[in-house]
Design a protein around this nucleic acid. Structure first.
Lengths: 248, 248
DNA sequence: GATCTATTTTGATTTAAATCAAAACAGAGT
DNA sequence: ACTCTGTTTTGATTTAAATCAAAATAGATC
């Protein structure tokens, strides 16, 4: 794994196209040259859409696995409940990303997914996906890339282990920034959908530490914090702040 | 994700078969009912074996990706080098496990893999695997399970974020124990192939902290440490020690 | 707009782990 | 068996983050 597992070291903001703008199909099929019939098969595969209101769950740990979900719009959090009742956040997921990949291994969802804002997803029955993938190799290959990317990202989280709170936060913000940019949103100016506590859980910090680290980054002039609204005012120094940058 | 992402909460040692005993083919194909011809195609796919001596690299970050590697015997460490030259360990891999899944996303290896003891791997050209997978759906599905399992495992590492040093070590040892058991080795008595520093890197701790945590677990009668040799003398309390158990 | 609740910030203190340092030990090679 | 080197253990000290506590702020609801 290169150190850019969480973010390419020097992604060029302006060069990032809003490639997989809003649709699960796009995310799954963009790089593919398809004929009429294949497009039809895919349309059939991807025609189940669902609205998930803020606070509602998309799936819960322990439930049978049938479908992947491509986020068409909105924002999700995945988490597990530990024995002691504490909630451990395992990821944040935005437009164009795919949820449910972890469930393939056991045919059971291993985490809970809840919408942090009103969202729309595209349900992709996995059995059908594998079927169609047999006749459209590039689709199958693309699924493999998506799964692999997930592995790279999750593994990149290990790098946080060696970082201090401020570095973790910087890394987290840069990763969000990168992902917003990929989707055509501003990479320098965005709203956090999650609480400090959720960020802390994800990064292995307490919420007070998250708050302090953000305040510190602001003091140092790297970012501008207004509760949930974040502006990256010096992205260069923010990168250097991470020590070892890395993103998606 | 359930809390057992790193280890099933109550795996029954005696009931674990040495299922995928030693071969990449087994790991990739066990649950599959195959006919003559399919077996042949697979044999062809899996006939490239390599010996990797202790200290030698299987692949390095940045190199072009062509093949997955199934570990037939031995023990590997994967790691990335950070800008400051520090080494971040990203995983340990033993017989029956598959290396290189992270490289699919970019067609480039994202980490280095080095043998921690003399090892043997089975090279699996990925293009061929996808080809053959098209005609053997269960093989393709099994690949998906393997990748998904990797995601679950990597994500389970996030749970370490909320743990103290002793809990992390206990979790780590139980995960190793579980994986040894699956392969038919003793789950209560094994040798660590890696140094304290490598364990620390993986768990987000310094080597001194690892050493102290092990000593502490020994004092408390949960394990028996003799440099690299570990005996789990009270696996029940070791599990409770993790607070929230979880494994593979 | 006023009230209530959840979230966030900040401060004081404690605690766990990192750091610094040195001794003990193990394994490889001679 | 002896030496050399890398690894591990243990101790003393410092530092970063957790914890405890309270005030400030933001959002939601009436």
């Amino acid at each position: 794994m290169t150190p850019d597992s969480l973010m390419p070291k020097n992604f060029n903001i302006s060069s990032i196209k809003a490639s997989c703008s809003s649709c699960g199909l796009r995310e799954l099929c963009l790089p593919v040259g398809l004929d009429e019939q294949e497009i039809k098969a895919l349309d059939h595969l991807l025609n189940q859409r669902h609205r998930i209101r803020r606070g509602e769950h998309l799936h819960r740990a322990g439930l049978d696995f049938h479908s992947l979900y491509a986020v068409r719009s909105g924002f999700f959090k995945t988490y597990v409940l530990q024995e002691d009742g504490r909630e451990q956040v395992t990821g944040f997921h935005m437009t164009g990303e795919v949820l449910g990949l972890d469930a393939i291994s056991t045919d059971m969802h291993t985490c809970n997914a809840v919408a942090l804002e009103d969202s729309e997803v595209c349900e992709i029955p996995f059995v059908k996906l594998e079927e169609i993938g047999r006749t459209i190799p590039s689709l199958m290959h693309h699924l493999h890339k998506i799964m692999s990317r997930e592995i790279v990202h999750d593994r990149g989280m290990l790098l946080l282990g060696g970082m201090k709170a401020g570095e973790r936060l910087a890394t987290f913000l840069l990763n969000l920034s990168y992902r917003f940019a990929k989707r055509g949103y501003s990479p320098l100016d965005f709203n956090l959908r999650m609480t400090r506590e959720e960020i802390g859980s994800y990064l292995g910090l307490k919420l007070e530490t998250v708050s302090r680290a953000l305040s510190r980054l602001q003091e140092d002039g790297l970012i501008d914090v207004n509760s949930k609204h974040i502006r990256l005012t010096d992205i260069g120094r923010l990168r250097r702040q991470t020590g070892n940058s890395f993103c998606e």
